[in-house]
Amino acid sequence: MGEIPVFFLHGLVYAGLLFLVSSGLTLVFGMMNVLNLAHAAFYMLGAYFSYSVLNITGHFYLCLIICPLFLFILGMLVERFLLRRVHVYGHVQELLITFGVAYIITESVKWIWGNYPLGVNLSGFLTGSVNLFGLFYPVYRLFMFFCAVFISLIMAMVLYKTKIGIIVRASVDDTEMVNALGVNVPVVFTAVFGFGAALSGFAGVIAGPLLTTYPGMAAEILVDAFVVIVIGGMGSLGGAIVASLMIGELQSFGALLFPKLSLALMYMLMAAVLIIRPSGLFGEEQ
């Protein structure tokens, strides 16, 4: 009868992963009004880079630092040299360019690493199980969850305790006003976009060993992340936390209780939330 706690923990782990991906997506949307379709491709790149770095160096912990850093730089380049150039033409063009980037990344991944799943083999302490109140649970899943909590705490500290955080939150409210107060908004955009890509890449690194690394992994999490930011309210980080937990648990228990319905449940929840609160749980009323 250990099923319920196990599925609850599975739900928490997936919620942590979803939050890492959707937080960047919702921040970028809140500030720049751009729905970044390439966001999940950054997640996938994180997983693939991690696979290669692990093969070369043999150190998984190194991947946790190097891969997000690489995606931070890649994200900034995409914002600075692609997104900013099409910004003047409007949102449709911005959406299209992120779609193009996602497409290029997905095809490049197939070309470089092959169109088949790759297994990331860990060794040592992370591969074991741990006894949690009489329940044996994989250490790696707990590790994923703690990584997500740790990153979220750092993010909350930065957003609520530093001047940079205040600027980012103010930009979600009103970018034009932030600009008129003397803040170099384009630089803030580039940095936040890069930061979102890094978070997404980090999620990819920790997801790789559990969820296998394959070219379809981006599309898979992108749908869930969209549902999270729609339910939570576009631009709201608090909303992203709550909605990640909801979707994580719903998918986990959905798979246990109604395996045939588990995908539909997520959309039913989204529809229900939108009927009651069209701007999402924590979204600003338009």
Binding site: I166, I167, R169, A170
Partner: peptide
């Protein structure tokens, strides 16, 4: 300094944080 129509304070920031936003970067 520019004070627009409709006030445009940052609604999700506190009064104190709104004032901090007025300190110019650079």
């Amino acid at each position: 300094g520019y004070v627009p129509e409709d006030r445009r304070i940052f609604k999700s920031l506190t009064t104190h944080e709104n004032l901090l936003m007025g300190i110019k970067g650079g």
